[in-house]
Design a binder for these strands. Structure first.
Lengths: 119, 119
DNA sequence: AGTGGATGGTAAAGTGGCTTGACCATACAT
DNA sequence: ATGTATGGTCAAGCCACTTTACCATCCACT
């Protein structure tokens, strides 16, 4: 994933940043809410948001509904990075599908899904 | 894995220590050789070995064949920890087998094995 | 036999993501 | 109006790890 991002111009991203983009992504979320969803501390997330803001992937804008709060807004670059990540997932899935065969790949997905369910 | 180790008295182990025990374990190996196998730097491995030695899981003894070199020797406690790790793997596999059914569990294993082959 | 590069190991400083602790401002329930 | 909850941030410290720099020994080659 990171290799593909770097190859396509997003070479200032690093592994920890990827968590922020985990489905469905940070756009529109409030930092505290996002931290809870990603199971990291508010401070840790804030640190990553600071980096991503400095790198131009997102902005922290005031929340119109709550003066204390912020809203994460992806920039054009941030949206582009998210798109590349989803493309990369698609590519890797196609590779694996080619290696295992379509039917067996679907089996793999299904088996993993069952294992992940209600851990 | 870590939960089970902690529950069985090895509660001074932490995630990074587990790499050192990766199959087939550190017993008899030289630090540099082990570092290469685990794909970590010599210094990083040495740091972990230092901790594990201090905690009583292993000792670094002089290598009879090379004065420069050392040999990692698991203590009784180290061997016991390794045994618990293998037991834990067995238990988790049995759980998953029960959840998926024996045949489908074997399929999962086989599919994952194919994906891991020659990455 | 001597020499120079390779190898095994370690110390020390620095890096970076993260946690803990403390704090301020605003919201909201009573 | 007041006390507690919530959203956010700063600062210090932690810890696994990297980088840099060494020293000692081994070994191939002349």
């Amino acid at each position: 994933m990171l290799e593909r991002l770097h190859a396509r111009g997003f070479d200032d991203l690093d592994v920890p940043h990827l968590t922020v983009f985990l489905f469905p992504g940070p756009h529109g979320a409030r930092p505290t809410e996002l931290a809870a969803r990603l199971r990291v501390s508010k401070q840790s997330l804030n640190y990553l948001l600071g980096q991503l803001e400095r790198l131009g992937y997102l902005e922290r804008r005031p929340d119109p509904d709550d003066v204390r709060s912020k809203r994460v807004m992806l920039t054009r670059r941030g949206v582009a990075a998210g798109r590349v990540m989803r493309q990369a997932v698609g590519e890797i899935e196609r590779e694996w599908r080619a290696r295992l065969g379509a039917q067996r790949f679907d089996q793999l997905r299904q088996l993993l899904r069952e294992l992940v369910e209600q851990v």
